[in-house]
Nucleic acid binder design. Structure first.
Lengths: 344, 344
DNA sequence: GTGAAAGCGCTAACAG
DNA sequence: CTGTTAGCGCTTTCAC
């Protein structure tokens, strides 16, 4: 490809010519390499400044074999959880001079692997949020994606660290809070069956049941929206439970709304908890007891894991778990006709 | 740099060797160039498949002088507006095989120009969301960023298209709706003074006042949070207005909450409107009349503008304006002691 | 239709 | 300390 239209963009050779030095010297100066005579360095600097020279990252990427960019693969950029993970990763990576390339599969999971692969080729590593991908597919994909860090799932492929939110612990704590208040019959108003975080909550509840054998936990099918919560009221009421663990804040608010319309008092008649601690949770009537997941922190730690992978330091923990912390507000209280007794 | 550690990654030359053809031919096949003998093409294809060869985008980028990536610069990835713009851009760009690189200035506006410049060097273009940047700085920066498209602001630098949300039109419509219902004294509970979209609403209200001279519009200082709305109740009440335009849904909800506590009925005593149509708006008591801005669509159109810039087609409209549409729900009604009369 | 070879813009090993 | 030079992996012109 001998002749190309000569680009106007000014390049390293222009600076070299202007400063009367070699390309290598300009490169050294631009990269802060100390081994350059200060006088020459200064001359190069001012030549670069006069020409408003900015090194072209593309050329640099090719020569260095890295892009200082990582890809973040998400199934849906509209989902607050992934938005927050993305933000955490982006901010943390920026601290180290790395940028983030987005790969949004828009819920088309068949494209996920391809998208992730493309992202990986353009970047130095990939943070993968792929809750729906089968374990088998993930295992096959993982090696080609490394360095890779997983969000909210694990794999036994070597060198594939994860960051996890312990949704199970969160729901356990919430259930424990209800038990402490004296509730003996608790209902879990479940999220969508396909939801990974719902499955995690279920596991947490099983643990809870084992440690609290005298407490009945009934499971109610439901969904993840406000409407779902609203419509769960009949089931909730007929369950006879006095403590309700809603799948998330949205469904809790829907339930609260329906309960309110029926004249059922919260928390006097029924206690309700949410999950997520969305900004509104503190403004419901009554304010919602819930569990907040440190998602942004998980995103930041995803970068921290990536950095260790990239910079070759030993990985201390392959899986980093972040526990939600419960926020007790007004929607939970001692059950009807009970005193404030406790058991932990 | 004569000797480098030979990368294990398989490259175009491996495929060429395996297929017994030249690099150029492999390149042609990989790029779908028709001028290759079908037999040879097939041989190359299978060689590539066997080796699991994937062209390295970095090398390609350098040779082609483009990255098929655009940068999106936002002041805060935590802000729902920018998240939605980002999502719109990302989805639309993906349709054309382009990816998005994030540049989050984290509200540090002094870094914005630098960040945008870096993003631009790595990408083929930049979508700039920089509401706080001074017009002067923008004018200086714009030429170096092109191809560039602006979000929610304009500049007179040539070839700098914009997508805009017409917040002024939205508030005008809301005010018009109140006027139609018969309200003659309307209060605008303003957002933060530094907010660009607040300024736009103010301009819209001025227009409204000109076209509705017999309606009094009083301005109340306030903020953008639920609490701000809650605390605006006193001002709202003492303003004597029967129709209230809250800065956004959050403040409207705060106001609603305070009004409710004081036993003031909405909409019988006072009508309240919000702005944004957040998911909760339909679940407040009463459901909130508000205006929804098509932000995602604006993001998609930002890509459409970018594509025209990139692919050289003439730009038909330099500025594309998107109008919010109002959603009438239960929080607005005929004012006290009035019949349902109308004026438009 | 195919290949040789010259870059894209920069880095880094090597020699001085 | 500085320059020469050989790439990084791919595309594309030019000549066959």
């Amino acid at each position: 490809m001998a002749k190309r239209a000569p680009s106007n963009r000014i390049g390293i050779s222009d600076v070299a010519a202007k400063a009367g030095v070699s390309l290598a010297t300009v490169s050294r100066v631009m990269n802060g390499n100390q081994s350059v005579d200060p006088k020459i360095a200064a001359r190069v600097q001012s030549a670069a400044a006069e020409l408003k020279y900015q090194p072209n990252p593309i050329g640099r990427n090719l020569a260095r074999g890295k892009t200082e960019t990582i890809g973040v693969v998400v199934p849906d950029l509209g989902n607050p959880t992934f938005q927050t993970v993305l933000r955490g990763v982006s901010r943390a990576a920026a601290q180290d001079g790395y940028r983030v390339l987005i790969a949004d599969s828009s819920e088309v999971s068949s494209e996920e692997a391809i998208l992730a692969g493309e992202a990986r080729r353009r970047c130095d590593g990939v943070v993968l949020c792929a809750p729906r991908m089968s374990a088998a597919e993930l295992e096959e994909l993982a090696p080609s994606l490394q360095p890779m860090v997983l969000v909210n799932r694990t794999t036994n492929v070597p060198n594939s660290p994860s960051v996890m939110i312990d949704y199970g612990k969160g729901i356990q704590d919430l259930a424990g809070h209800l038990a402490d208040l004296g509730h003996t019959r608790i209902a879990y108003v479940a999220g969508p069956a396909s939801s990974a975080s719902n499955a995690l909550r279920l596991v947490g509840l099983e643990k809870f049941s084992r440690t609290h054998p005298h407490i009945e936990v009934v499971h109610l099918r439901n969904g993840s929206t406000f409407e779902d919560g609203y419509e769960s009221a009949n089931d909730v009421l007929s369950s006879g439970a006095t403590g309700i663990l809603a799948f998330n804040d949205l469904t809790a608010m829907g339930l609260l709304s329906s309960l309110n319309e029926r004249g059922i008092r919260v928390p006097e008649d029924i206690s309700v908890t949410g999950f997520d601690d969305i900004p509104f949770a503190r403004y419901t009537t009554p304010p919602l007891t819930t569990a907040a997941a440190p998602i942004m922190e998980a995103g930041e730690q995803a970068w921290a894991q990536m950095r260790e992978l990239l910079f070759g330091n030993a990985i201390t923990e392959a899986v980093r778990v972040f526990e939600p912390h419960i926020v007790v507000r007004g929607s939970t209280g001692v059950p009807h006709g009970k005193d404030s007794t406790a058991e932990s």
